[in-house]
Amino acid sequence: MSGYLLTHLKQLEAESIHIIREVAAEFENPVMLYSIGKDSSVMVRLAMKAFHPGPLPFPLLHIDTGWKFRDMITFRDAFCREHGLRLIVHTNDAPEARALHPVTAGSKTWTDVMKTQALLQALTAGGFDAAFGGARRDEEKSRAKERVYSFRDRFHQWDPKNQRPELWNLYNGRINKGESIRVFPLSNWTELDVWQYVHLEHIPVVPLYFAAPRPVVERDGNLIMVDDQRLPLDPGEQPQSRVVRFRTLGCYPFSGAVESSATTLPAIIQEMLLARTSERQGRMIDYDEAGSMEQKKKEGYF
């Protein structure tokens, strides 16, 4: 700390803690979206730092589609137990949702029903007026313009033309009854920043990020892991054991693996830095149509 200089990670950390505290101070009933991924893990750590030595003054919320990797659920439960975190798990169990199968429904319908609608159900049921999300601006072009506080109307809708200007670190948290905000404390972090922070702070992450032999099938150039018996196999399709890992985690039928030998954090970071494709490429939901992320956000997706 010589010369009173903060490294960029320490500065990002301080800015994120400021945002998290501000929401806790100004909102009546916040909740933190917890997706079990590396970004969520960093966000939860920042929240723990913000309120140390006290506990988090809000619960975590996981939207479980029922098709997450088994390792994710195991990790989630152990992590929350270890840190005494309050966790709400919500799954859309409306009859039409239960009738859906991710593979036959396709990623667009699946995301809409099991993620977007499920999220809105959980937010409404909990009466939450602020929801933290781990999205970063560097993930996708339309995210670059997202505010730290993203204002939603009574129907959880996002209007890109009607967002409030955000100056200095003076966040405007004034809302009317029934309205809410989404808050993105990691807005200014990049993928590298997140990984490096995980590394420096020894933050535990789901083992799926590390390379290991896993049973996969290759579909349209994507390596899909056969995480359980529910994944329908085409005639003649035979899972093969390949050494793979995941750059992003979601519902396993939609999460493409990459072949890799990276078994340590530095090796993952090295691979990421040398990679020439962005992390969202393995996430199939972005490929539905041009500007798709924007459309999903308008409908209430995180």
């Binding site: 990002l12 530095p266 090796a267 970071i269």
Partner: peptide, 16 residues
């Protein structure tokens, strides 16, 4: 490519 740990040590000291 050659020394990721050295790289990380350098990156860790970056200024924003």
């Amino acid at each position: 490519a050659t020394d990721i740990d050295a790289y990380l040590a350098q990156h860790e000291r970056k200024e924003l």
